[in-house]
Amino acid sequence: MGKISIHEWFSKKQKEKQQQNSSSEKLNIPDNLWIKCVSCKTALYAKELKENLNVCPKCGYHFKLSALERINLLIDGGSFKELSPTLKATDFLGFFDSKPYAKRIEDAILKSSLNEAIVIGEGLIENIKTSLGVMEFSFMGGSMGSGVGEKFTRMIEHSIENKIPAVVVTASGGARMQEGIMSLMQMAKVSAALGRLRETGLPYIVVLTDPTTGGTTASFAMLGDIQIAEPEALIGFAGPRVIEQTIRQKLPKKFQRSEFLLEHGMIDLICERKNLKGTLSKILKFFVE
């Protein structure tokens, strides 16, 4: 065997890895027939995955659900009435990074067929009338700007007016930087709405899904009377990269994952997707019956 330096060995390994990755991506992407599980790397039939609520049948990894899929999962058939469906963000700062915010909004609307990163409405969860907000991560990373803040607030106000519980399913990278300070102010706004809801005694339930970070976590995502999380969801205030840079050490395994939060007393329970509706309805019954 010819001698190679450690450095060469690493770069060779890295090259091999890159080649593997690119070829497997090529296999997966074309018509979405096959999807490789992010966690256990098993190749899964897209159809099979879908039928299993986007949960890997092999290892239980929870893939993301779209807002509409989530509503279908949780709300009794045909009972969902959407509120404020036409509410949209607007580029009031004239902000542009790699593309103008106005264009970003447009693209996100086209891509997701939604007008904002949260869908709100009213529906039945096993016959219990509930306000529901579901975030859409594919819409600009589920970021909270004026639109999301306003819709969430209206959802809570709908609960107060109709004396019904409120449930939110989060998936968000945090505040929408393209709206500057106004996105920070949404944290105040949504929390104020929850302060009001709390005084009515109506329950507010949070379902944390992967990922929920930043300003969303530091406002409505952490204020539930009951905090439920899907398994292995990333949940935190600062992003792991920022923390690593700050403390200059490697983060522990499973840091900021649901299981870590449970261990540290930050959430009430972890619930697999297949049991989510049943669990929610039991919790809601505790409050409303």
């Binding site: 944290m187 105040a188 929390s191 104020a192 929850l194 302060g195 009001r196 709390r198 005084e199 976590t217 530091a218 406002s219 409505f220 995502a221 952490m222 204020l223 935190g236 205030f237 600062a238 920022v242 923390i243 700050t246 403390i247 983060l251 522990p252 840091f255 900021q256 540290h264 007393g265 930050m266």
Partner: peptide
């Protein structure tokens, strides 16, 4: 900003801020 540290996350930085916002409102 709030400190982005390991202990801060363990002890619930997000929850601490969120609760302050809700309480200050009333």
């Amino acid at each position: 900003g709030a400190y982005p540290g390991l202990g801060a996350e363990e002890r619930g930085q997000a929850e601490a801020i969120a609760k302050n916002l809700r309480e200050m409102a009333v």
